[in-house]
Amino acid sequence: MARNQLPRGPSQMRHVLDVLKPQRSDKFRESFRVSPCTFDKICTKLAPDPVFSNNSQNEQIPLADQLAVALYHFGHDGNGASMQAVADWAGLGKGTVHLITRRVMTAVLRPSFRESAVQFPTADEKELAKSWVEAHSCHAWRNGWCLVDGTLIPLYDRPHWYGESYFDRKSNYSLNVQVFIFIYFICNSVYLS
Rank of each mutant, 00 (worst) to 15 (best):
R3G: 02
R8F: 02
G9C: 07
P10Q: 13
P10L: 11
S11H: 00
S11R: 03
M13Y: 02
R14D: 06
R14T: 10
R14G: 05
H15D: 07
L17H: 06
V19N: 02
L20E: 08
L20M: 10
R24V: 13
D26K: 13
R29G: 01
F32L: 05
F32H: 06
V34N: 00
D40L: 10
C43P: 00
K45E: 06
L46A: 08
L46R: 01
F52D: 00
S53A: 12
N54F: 01
Q57A: 09
N58S: 09
N58G: 06
N58Q: 06
I61W: 01
P62S: 01
L63A: 02
Q66L: 03
Q66G: 04
V69I: 12
V69A: 01
A70M: 08
L71V: 05
Y72P: 01
Y72A: 00
F74V: 09
H76K: 12
D77M: 11
G78P: 07
G80A: 09
A81W: 07
A81K: 03
M83T: 04
M83P: 03
Q84W: 10
A85N: 01
A85W: 02
A87P: 04
D88K: 09
D88E: 11
W89K: 04
L92P: 03
G93W: 05
G93Q: 07
G95K: 14
V97M: 07
L99Y: 14
I100S: 03
I100V: 11
T101I: 12
R102V: 13
V104Q: 02
T106H: 14
L109Y: 14
L109F: 14
R110C: 06
P111K: 08
P111I: 02
P111T: 07
S112F: 02
S112A: 09
F113W: 06
F113S: 05
S116E: 09
V118C: 15
V118F: 15
Q119M: 15
Q119F: 14
E125V: 10
A129F: 13
A129G: 11
E134T: 15
A135W: 13
H136C: 15
S137M: 14
H139W: 15
R142Y: 15
W145H: 12
C146F: 13
C146T: 15
C146H: 11
L147A: 15
V148M: 15
G150N: 08
T151G: 07
L152V: 15
I153A: 14
P154F: 12
L155C: 14
L155E: 11
D157A: 13
P159V: 08
P159L: 03
H160I: 01
W161M: 04
Y162H: 03
R169T: 00
R169N: 00
S171N: 14
N172L: 14
Y173H: 10
L175R: 09
L175N: 09
V177Q: 10
I181G: 09
I183C: 07
C187Q: 09
V190M: 10
L192G: 00
L192I: 10
S193Q: 09
